[in-house]
Structures are given as C-alpha cells and as structure tokens.
C-alpha cells in the first residue's frame, strides 16, 4: 500500500543525507515531523548544520521558503507584515511579512523577545494571523522549522513550556562523525550546495503524502502501549509533570510518519520508541535541574514500560 507512495520520498531523504553528511537519523526525524504535519525545533550550537537541514528540506520538498533571522530587536510586524497607507488610493495596503510562505525558517528563535516569539507561535498554532483587525489565512501546507541555541548561551530568551509544546519534535544534530567531517573539510560537499538542489516534490504532492501517513493503521494494542507510555511519564518521579494529551496525539502522528517512512502500513512499538525522545524531551522537565529531559532518561523510561 504505502510502499509505492513512500518511494518518491525516499529520494528526498537520500538527497538530504548527501547534503547533511552522517546524520541519517536526524534527517529522518525531521522528515517524519513534516509528514506528520508538525513544526520542528532544531536545537544545537551554532554551525552544526541546522540551517542547512532546514533549507535543504524546503528546497527538496518544493516548498516556498522564507527565512527570518531572529534578533533581540525583531518586532512582530517584521514577521507578520505591515499595512502601509498609499496616497494614490487613499487606503491602507497590507504588505505580507515572511510568515506568508509554506516553510518558514525561524533562525535562532530564542534570540527574539518573548513578544515576538509569541507572535510567531500563535500563527503556528492557528494557521492564520490577525493584523489590523483582519484575519488572514496562512498558506497550506505551513511549516515552521525553528532553530535555537542551547538556552544557557548569552543573550537568549528561553521558550516557555507552553510554547515548546507547539513543536511536534525537537532534535539535536550534534557533531558529525570523523568520516563525515573529513568529507566536509575535503570540500566534497559544501553547505552552499543547497542552493543548487532541485525540488524532488512539489507543494501539491506533500498534502497527499500527509494523507497517506494518516491512513497508516494503528491497532488497539499499539494504543495500549502509547497510553502506558503517557501514563509512565505522568507517574515518573524524575519528571515535574507528564506528557499532555496533545503530546500523545503528536506522538501517535509522528509514529505513523515513522512507520510510513519505513514502508509499513501499520505502526509498531519500534516506531513509537524511535520518535519518543524527539517528541517528549522538550516537553518534559527533569526534577534534577529543571532542564529539558535528557534522551537517556527517555530510554530508561522505555525500558520500564512493558510492551502489551
């Protein structure tokens, strides 16, 4: 069933892996996030390839792309757009901001003030923006890939938990392995090669693929497993609070996308386990340091929950 529809997307993954070397797991997670219709947060130190990943995904999927570099003096109008009074028509004209694109790369989102952050995040949730008392729909599909520096860096406003919950996944890229770094240093690939990448899909194909992902079968046994996991995060002594129902829905959607990328028409516990760290870490707060949960804590949780 989905084997045939999944194949064109395989080319996207391959191409993406050629640009961002040595990170197949991360590119796959990012793709799954977009296929599940969720927004993606990439968190890592500067220069690890966050922008490259976001940019190349946008190009490969044939999405209309805009980028905003977030700074501390960025204003909401810089994202949403402004109305300008035109003398010849004696009327205001709305000039749409960069948010009116299919894929918005919000670079270093935690450098902007909370007010500006929340303007973006409202739009992410509602799929529409309101400016000058008028509501305008955002394009469809509409994705936000945001990058942020680890919050302990100087000059950052960490995103509050409620806002973090709007991102389906948060991934970290980490240092490349030796081989990948060597290829990069040897100049076999350049990060600017994203600019030359040709789209492999178009904006019409993507919703169809997303629909196919939604058709991936979920059995009662799998839902049992999901519930057991959600319950475990809520009972767990290491976490301040558990995963929300919205997180549960997101987990299911992400697992579906993961299964679909694997060419299967049903979700297995393996899929849930594969996406759980990316879906859960940024939503959970560790009791020890108040920081986001560590992937190792999630792995431990997975070892504690029996698979029904």
């Amino acid at each position: 069933m989905s084997m045939s529809t999944q194949q064109p997307f395989q080319a996207v993954l391959n191409a993406c892996n050629e640009i961002l070397l040595g990170k197949p797991q991360e590119t796959r997670l990012a793709s799954a996030c977009l296929l599940a219709g969720g927004h993606l947060l990439i968190e890592d130190l500067p220069g690890m390839g966050k922008t490259t990943l976001a940019h190349s995904l946008a190009r490969l999927l044939g999405l209309e792309f805009a980028r905003i570099q977030f700074t501390s003096d960025l204003l909401p109008a810089d994202i949403i757009g402004v109305s300008i009074f035109e003398r010849e028509h004696s009327a205001f004209r709305f000039i749409p901001g960069p948010i009116f694109s299919q894929l918005l790369l919000a670079d270093e989102i935690n450098r902007a003030s909370p007010k500006t952050q929340s303007a973006l995040l409202e739009a992410m949730e509602e799929g529409q923006v309101t400016a000058d008392g008028q509501t305008r729909r955002l394009p469809h599909p509409f994705f936000v890939i945001a990058t942020q520096n680890p919050s302990h860096q100087i000059g950052t406003f960490p995103l509050p938990e409620s806002q973090l919950d709007r991102f389906l996944m948060r991934i970290e890229l980490g240092y490349p392995d030796r081989q990948a770094e060597r290829a990069l240093l040897a100049g076999h690939v350049t990060r600017s090669s994203t600019g030359r990448t040709l789209p492999l899909l178009n904006a019409e194909q993507l919703p169809a693929l997303q629909a196919a992902v939604q058709r991936v079968h979920v059995s009662a046994a799998l839902i049992d497993y999901l519930q057991a996991l959600l319950e475990a995060t809520r009972q767990h002594p290491d976490f301040r609070h558990g995963l929300s129902p919205r997180a549960g829905l997101g987990l299911l959607a992400a697992a579906r996308a993961w299964a679909w990328l694997d060419g299967r028409d049903r979700v297995l516990p393996d899929d849930v386990q594969a996406v759980l760290p990316a879906v859960a870490c940024h939503r959970l707060r560790s009791n020890r340091d108040g920081q986001a949960a560590h992937p190792e804590e999630i792995a431990q949780l997975l070892r504690q929950v029996a698979i029904p």
């Binding site: 297995l268 516990p269 393996d270 386990q273 997975l302 070892r303 504690q304 929950v305 029996a306 698979i307």
Partner: peptide
Amino acid sequence: LAPGETPNT
C-alpha cells in the same frame, strides 16, 4: 525478552 524491548529488537 528484555523489559521494554520490542519484538523486532
């Protein structure tokens, strides 16, 4: 079977 281990693993 290890705890939390999926059948595939």
